[in-house]
Amino acid sequence: MATKTTGHQLADILFPEAREQQDFADGILSVPPEQRKLHTETYDFTVETIVEKLNDESIFIPHFQRRYVWTEPQASRLIESLIIQCPIPVIYLNQENDERLSVIDGNQRLTTIRRFVENQFALKGLTAYPELEGSRFFELDPRFQRHILNRTLRCIVILKDTHPQVKFDVFERLNTGATKLTPQELRHGLYFGDLMSLATAVAKESEFLSLLEIKNDKRMKAEELVLRFWALNSDFDKYRKPLASFINAFSEANRRLTPEQQGEFRKSFKETLEAVKSLLGDMTFRIFDRAFNVESSFNSALYDALMVGVAQNLASGKLSLMPTKKAQLLLASLIENDEQFRRAISIATSDESQVRYRVNAIRKLFAN
């Protein structure tokens, strides 16, 4: 008999953001106390210097940042604030390994300033200086031009020797846009490199998006699931919660990959996914009973149990090949009859004991 959904499980479904916030908090607590400090330097860059740095990409907008969305009246008010010497909010930058600075918070402001200095829009909707309405930068009196270019913006740079999880936590704290970035969108920007590019490509190549019924993966859910498998499969015995921090550490350690490593990662995901699909067919990653009533069309905890458990059997040569119907009934029986497995895919799913139990249960279920 299927287990009844508890109030705690229902809350996790209805309020997922609260769980994510707890994951961030747990992530910081997993860092040794002496490494939780944020290492920063403060710079006052002139507008002219910032535009130069944006153009030579020594300051750059990373992949996870939202596209430019400000209207011309919004942009014009920022330029007017520069003219009247109104304080501009602090810009937060991240020091990359190659010494360049990526923008954490301030994309809209910096892009607006560059666009105006490069004559890409005219001032509109001004309140303090309506006399400048309709003017582009080159049309302003040279004294106004110099005044704008000489204004300074306070920039706080998070140095590269800051612990990666502390950086991730700061990114999340500064993530206050109308549409908040998901943990994977933040991770994609913070650890962008060979691994992230490969995860995006593999999700498309393997037809994983169609399996998840995702037409346009704007929030990078499929990419996160690919990374989740690679992290757990590569370092299963070293897994420690929270899962988000574990994936972060894996992403940082594998940011740069050789062609051979990329080939191994690509092969492991594709072969494992094909094996799981061969076993479970149209019930892949679904929670269902022996009458084939589907309770959940996708469960991420069941996903990593199946992927990692099957991958371990493939690696040891012990994967049991069987008719799909038989495999489906075996999994349905496990879900219905093993209360501990049911809890492992439903409650506190990132706990070490829960992760290990569900993966080992699947490995034994489909072993010779």
Rank of each mutant, 00 (worst) to 15 (best):
R154F: 01
I287C: 11
L243T: 07
L174E: 10
V355Q: 07
I88L: 10
E224C: 02
Q165V: 12
K270T: 15
Q120M: 05
H163R: 00
V157H: 04
L232P: 06
R143E: 08
L302D: 03
S268Q: 12
F292H: 13
F229C: 07
V310P: 01
F168P: 06
S297H: 10
H39Y: 04
L78E: 07
I83C: 03
R356V: 06
A332C: 03
S320Q: 12
M196I: 14
T49D: 13
Q22D: 11
R66F: 09
F285M: 05
P87W: 10
P259Y: 10
L38A: 14
C155F: 11
K270A: 15
T112Q: 12
D141H: 15
G281S: 06
K37A: 08
L198K: 05
T49Y: 00
L329S: 13
I84F: 03
N150Y: 02
M196T: 07
R173V: 01
L78D: 07
E72C: 03
L273H: 09
V157M: 05
A231N: 08
I335F: 05
E172K: 09
Q65R: 05
R19G: 08
A122T: 10
Q65H: 08
E205W: 03
T349S: 10
A275Q: 10
S268I: 05
K215I: 05
G134M: 12
S316T: 10
I28Q: 08
L257K: 03
N175V: 04
A25P: 00
R228F: 06
F298M: 02
